[in-house]
């Protein structure tokens, strides 16, 4: 699958997701026929394009659609949560 097509599929899946943040493994559901290495290339590109963003607890990393769910401003306590 072309990487642009894969990126589009991932974004469609991510935007439809009811969860604001999701594990990398869950993103594989967007294109179950592909392996994690291929998914990673597309996800990394989407982070570079600032369409997806990382969320980390320090021990675990999750991904989210930028602006969806908790935001940097909300975490800093400048917005009401």
């Amino acid at each position: 699958m072309d990487i642009e097509e894969l990126k589009k599929k991932i974004m469609e899946w991510a935007e439809k997701s009811t969860k604001p943040k999701f594990y990398f493994k869950d993103i594989g559901k967007a294109a179950p026929e592909l392996g994690p290495r291929e998914i990673k290339k597309a996800v990394t590109a989407l982070v570079q394009e600032q369409k997806l963003e990382y969320w980390s607890s320090g021990s675990t990393t999750m991904y989210g659609v930028k602006g969806k769910g908790i935001t940097e401003e909300a975490q800093m306590g400048t917005h009401e949560e």
Binding site: V47, S57, G58, T61, E72
Partner: peptide, 14 residues
């Protein structure tokens, strides 16, 4: 946890 980090890196900042 948090969203913060440096651009392009998914680790190194907590």
């Amino acid at each position: 946890g948090g969203i913060v980090g440096v651009f392009g890196y998914g680790g190194g900042v907590i």
